[in-house]
Simulated scan of single mutants.
Amino acid sequence: MTFRGPKVWLWRWRRNPLRRRADMVEAWVVLTAWVLTVLAGVAAGLTTAWSVEHGMARERVEWRPVAATLTERAPGEADASVSAASGERVWAKVRWTATDGSTHTGQARVRAGSGAGTSVTVWTDPQGRLVNKPATAAQASIRAALVGVLVGVSAAAVPFIGGRMLRGRLERRRMDQWDAEWALLGPLWGRTTG
């Protein structure tokens, strides 16, 4: 078991005759890596979260519900015992009229077994294309936070890993220097003065 003395905080920054230039370089590398890790992670995470939430807010404003009609019977069997909200949903062909008066057709999720001519609600963007129902403000906040955290952690990993790699390289260089010094001074240990 190796005994190590008490840990001295910031020892690389203190004046000490045993402190080498490599110790100062390593201290600056570690400090810079940590600062960049924190700044990159926070900046990327907050920017991404804001962008995602802003995009979803724009969707809530621009996307509109439109009444559509099934053009053919939906696949599957209609189950009268299942409420409309919790029934099985399948893809079926629908037709709707956009705000500019043009007629469009597409695939939308509807209750299984719904007959042709059944009225359903679909969501469209300003160009009249089918889109998903926009996320509520609470859902958008949760999604933005999750995406922001993932992007922030990913962005923070770059300077962190770079700092670790640079520190490892400095460590290898220091060990090589010690090996060279040991090769020079090691044989002198066995000699006695006399």
Rank of each mutant, 00 (worst) to 15 (best):
R89Q: 13
A138M: 12
K133E: 12
D179G: 05
S102C: 14
N132P: 06
G117R: 14
T97I: 15
G163D: 01
S141F: 11
L146S: 05
A98W: 02
P126V: 08
A98R: 10
D176V: 09
L170T: 04
Q139P: 08
D100H: 14
V158I: 11
R109T: 08
L146V: 07
A183G: 10
T105F: 01
G163T: 02
K93F: 01
E88L: 09
S114L: 14
A92S: 00
W182S: 07
R167G: 01
R129S: 03
Q107G: 03
G117M: 10
M165P: 05
W96D: 02
A157T: 03
G186S: 07
D100Q: 14
A112L: 07
L184K: 15
D100V: 15
G152F: 02
S102P: 06
G113H: 07
P187W: 07
V122F: 06
T99K: 09
V120A: 10
R111H: 10
T97H: 10
T97R: 14
A92L: 01
R109C: 07
P187C: 08
T136F: 06
W91E: 12
T118W: 14
R111K: 14
W123V: 04
S141Y: 03
T121P: 07
S102V: 12
L150T: 13
R111A: 12
T118H: 15
A180C: 05
A144E: 02
A140K: 13
A108S: 12
A135N: 09
G106P: 07
V153I: 11
R173C: 07
A145K: 03
G162V: 03
G101V: 15
W96V: 05
M175S: 05
